[in-house]
């Protein structure tokens, strides 16, 4: 009964839960660490680095903070691409939440996952935060689900 309830929202598409690229965490691959820190200080839990064709090529998450701090204190002009984690795991807008969660689980990704418009262009569309997914899924399932 409960798994039937849960399966419907899990089949929802990623785009429903997405934080769009327009108001996020995207930086060009020419950015410096200071720009990454600015994004973090604005409250983004992940910063995605994109190339000139808007494809995600690297990412920073809270677990990178230690090496960011070390590099930043040594040289404040360090380019972001020298420290970013790559390659970036991503899902498409049309993928299901279940697929996104399975991918995150299998790859040990905690913060969230990058979303691209489609497999062909791989253009960055936004970021899917685990925390916002949890909130929305919780609301969709209702209090009895927990």
């Amino acid at each position: 009964m409960m798994s039937q309830q849960a399966s419907q929202p899990l089949r929802s598409r990623v785009e429903l839960f997405l934080e769009p690229a327009s108001k996020t965490n995207k930086l060009p691959d020419t950015a410096a660490l200071v720009n990454v820190l600015e994004k973090f200080s604005e409250g983004h839990a992940a910063v995605v680095i994109v190339d000139s064709q808007e494809r995600p090529v690297g990412i920073f998450t809270p677990s990178d903070m230690t090496r960011i701090r070390q590099a930043f204190l040594q040289d404040r002009k360090t380019p972001a691409k020298d420290l970013m984690s790559a390659p970036v795991e991503w899902v498409e807008l049309s993928d299901t939440i279940e697929h996104a969660l399975d991918l995150m689980q299998s790859k040990g990704i905690h913060t969230g996952i990058a979303v691209v418009t489609d497999r062909r262009s791989q253009k960055y569309a936004g970021y899917l935060y685990r925390s916002s997914m949890a909130k929305m899924l919780s609301a969709m399932l209702g209090p009895k689900a927990f």
């Binding site: 798994s3 309830q5 849960a6 969660l101 689980q105 685990r130 949890a134 899924l137 689900a145």
Partner: peptide
Amino acid sequence: GGPLGDKGITP
């Protein structure tokens, strides 16, 4: 391992 727990996502 609740409805979402097995996906590693809980409040």
